[in-house]
């Protein structure tokens, strides 16, 4: 085939079926118009280079956009991606955490379980991310190809044109006052982890020693039956913590009400810790014996540990409560700041 036919084929194969023949005919006649009577390959090349890249020429004929997502949709696309990605990752990770701790049957070495969980977790985050990215991009690429030029200006998240009234919906939150999605997600993850450890303390928490088959579990820290007998208190703390985290997620910033709810939660959980750690039968005697042998303390180790845990927990609870109120007092105004400068 000669160069002209090849060029025409390169253009028309990118066009829709019904236009192909007509445009091919016109292109051929145009190219022949441009050529002198007796033409050489050199002449043909000169003419074809004037017409330029066949892909660009075909793009000119085509109604379809030559981009995946254009400026009209780009901003909404990016905002939705930023909003959905963390939520999807959180939702898919939490069951994984709970499942991998619950499926731990004591035979495997804890560290290995942790590492395999980390591997699975990274893979899970990666594959969820790819899924969200793929489907959202697909939806927007289709939108871009089906709106047929009805939308000519960039649209907002409400899929409407921007108006100054949209500014009213934007709360002005100073960075320190805001409660980030990561914070909420971390909170839920923390709850899932400590709850699982509480109910499985007998085979998870304790002293590990290096043995023949890697790490070996020597003695649990707690007297499991005593620890579990406090379950009603623990369930109350769990309920409060989950409720508080969800409430933080909804308000997305520290308000006086969030600070008060946080204070109540901190007080309740401190009381729970004090009650549980006041029980002299809580710690496993084997555990204490092992530590005494290891460090040969001269004082009463058990009561020191109990008191230490209580003091540390109460201290951090007080600190967190104080921080909550401090952040809630940070001044936040809606739009007023903007007006004042104008």
């Amino acid at each position: 085939m000669n160069l002209i036919e090849l060029y025409i084929q390169e253009v028309t194969r990118r066009l829709t079926e019904k236009n192909r023949e007509d445009i091919a005919l016109e292109l051929r006649s145009t190219i022949e118009d441009m050529l002198p009577e007796d033409y050489s390959d050199q002449n043909v090349k000169a003419v074809l280079s004037k017409l330029g890249n066949p892909a660009v020429l075909a793009g000119g004929y085509s109604d379809r956009p030559m981009h995946l997502i254009g400026p009209c949709y780009y901003d909404v696309y990016i905002s939705l991606l930023k909003m959905i990605l963390p939520i999807a990752i959180a939702i898919s990770t939490i069951p994984l955490v709970v499942d991998s701790i619950l499926s731990y049957n004591g035979d495997q070495v804890f560290l290995e379980v942790l590492l395999s969980f980390l591997g699975e977790g990274i893979w899970n985050v990666f594959s969820t991310g790819i899924q969200v990215f793929f489907w959202l991009t697909l939806v927007f690429a289709l939108l871009e190809r089906t709106d047929h030029g009805k939308i000519t200006v960039p649209i907002t998240a409400g899929f409407k044109e921007w108006t100054p009234d949209d500014l009213k919906d934007i709360p002005y939150i100073p960075k320190e006052k805001a409660i980030s999605k990561m914070n909420v997600f971390g909170g839920l993850l923390w709850t899932a982890i400590w709850v699982t450890f509480y109910f499985n303390a007998a085979r998870l928490l304790g002293i590990y020693e290096k043995g023949e088959h890697g790490l070996e579990f020597i003695a649990p820290t707690f007297n499991h039956e005593v620890l579990l007998s406090y379950w009603p208190i623990v369930v109350i703390v769990i309920g409060l913590e989950v409720a508080l985290t969800i409430y933080k997620w909804i308000t997305a910033q520290w308000t006086i009400r969030v600070a008060w709810l946080n204070a109540i939660f901190q007080i309740v959980s401190s009381i729970a810790i004090i009650v549980i750690f006041s029980d002299t039968n809580l710690l496993n005697p084997e555990f204490i014996e092992y530590l005494n042998k290891l460090f040969s303390f001269s004082f009463d180790l058990k009561s020191k540990i109990m008191l230490g845990v209580m003091i540390i927990c109460v201290f951090f609870a007080a600190l967190d409560t104080y921080q909550g109120f401090r952040k809630a007092r940070i001044h936040s105004e809606k739009n007023n700041t903007v007006n004042r400068h104008m």
Binding site: I23, E26, L27, T30, K50, L51, G52, N53, V56, L57, G60, Y61
Partner: peptide, 11 residues
């Protein structure tokens, strides 16, 4: 005029 622009423009 760029010819690759003109012909599509006519269409």
């Amino acid at each position: 005029i760029d010819q690759s622009t003109l012909y599509p423009l006519l269409r």
